[in-house]
Design a protein around this nucleic acid. Structure first.
Lengths: 207, 207
DNA sequence: TAGATTGTTAATCGATTAACAATC
DNA sequence: TAGATTGTTAATCGATTAACAATC
């Protein structure tokens, strides 16, 4: 599913002043081929104009529709360590209709009720999720805690987890998990770099 | 290329006390099927024992060999903001033969020569890369700077970039790029969560 | 031996690409 | 009209899975 990637690329093209885009502009910006763009769009009923490509503004709306961007998505961050804090402050979410509404931690030294994004005791995460109808969480707790915390989140009603703990959590019927394991990503990259060094193999960085 | 994922899963199993693993242990831990594990292994000439699976210690060595883990990989972090700092301090790299040797930033307030991982002026990144033969960098600078900085890195000799800036950099003959766009990852997850809500569709988090 | 497991060959599935018709 | 572009059908490619032989 590359629609989010297209949306991200489209925002950049729009910032550059594009009013219309052709499938190969988007392909370039997203790192795929023009045919892939058109095929992906047609699968979601997004269509352009034969000779004039796609209107940027219309495309923003159409991608937003498919991706459920009509309303702001409220998410929480669990674990207010360095990665958790970076996620709370991440600028890239702001323009994208994603709002981090709270962070949770076990360490009292990190609690902060007054902050723009409050840091709340982890004990209160279940009631917070229920009271606010939160469905998506970013998980940035230590490896040891990840499994247990994720179970608590799912029990409370979380249906999607973006997991930064270095332990592959599994998607189930109840929850969709997207794992980002930084060591795996970096190690994989190093593998391709080394492979490229030896052979004339070009190699591409995963995903 | 899932070998890094297997290696990560294997380390966890080892920590749990496993001396031997079967392909389905690894499959479980890595989130794939047992046949995929065996096929992947056989493609890289990694073999086990018919009735006794794989010796954990031997497998560690064999995966290490393929992944080039005989020597410590030295990497740099470019951009010492919140994400950059989180990467510098990331615990998960330590056990994995990856060492962050320096961070770079443009802001003098962040410079720190004495730190365990020094923060060095970005002006010195080219000479540092050349002097130390660094080949891999993690890029965590603002979107605006990402393209330009990446060109500087490649010119200096970097051959692999793990890019956290929200702009898709392209792999070329000179450099392998692995992009991690947090907004795209999260938005994609939200899409699957919403899809699962409506239909009985289960959905899986990309990659 | 019977059962469990690896490793491989062939079949299936899904995704990408090639080719091209439609049309602005 | 000619040329550029979309959208789709069919062909290709690669990856996953099914089936099973080998063997500890």
């Amino acid at each position: 599913m590359r629609l989010s990637t297209y949306r991200s690329a489209l925002k950049r093209l729009k910032a550059l002043g594009f009013k219309k885009v052709f499938s190969d502009n988007l392909a370039d910006a997203a790192g795929v081929t023009a045919v892939q763009v058109r095929k992906d769009f047609s699968m979601f009923g997004i269509s352009g104009n034969k000779r004039a490509g796609y209107s940027v503004d219309e495309l923003v709306v159409q991608l937003g529709r498919v991706l459920g961007k009509n309303e702001v998505q409220r998410v929480i961050v669990v674990g207010a360590g360095r990665i958790g804090t970076a996620l709370v402050r991440y600028k890239g979410f702001e323009g994208g209709g994603i709002k981090v509404v709270a962070a949770f931690d076990i360490d009292p030294a990190k609690f902060d009720d007054k902050a723009e994004v409050p840091v709340i005791p982890i004990d209160e995460v279940t009631s917070f999720i229920r009271a606010n109808g939160i469905r998506v969480a970013m998980l940035a707790v230590p490896e040891m805690a990840a499994q247990r915390v994720s179970e608590i989140l799912v029990a409370a009603g979380i249906r999607g987890i973006l997991n930064f703990a270095p332990i592959g959590l599994r998607s189930t019927d109840e929850v969709v998990v997207n794992n980002i394991n930084l060591e795996v990503e970096l190690e994989n990259l190093i593998y391709f770099v080394n492979a490229a060094r030896g052979s004339a193999d070009k190699g591409e960085g995963d995903r």
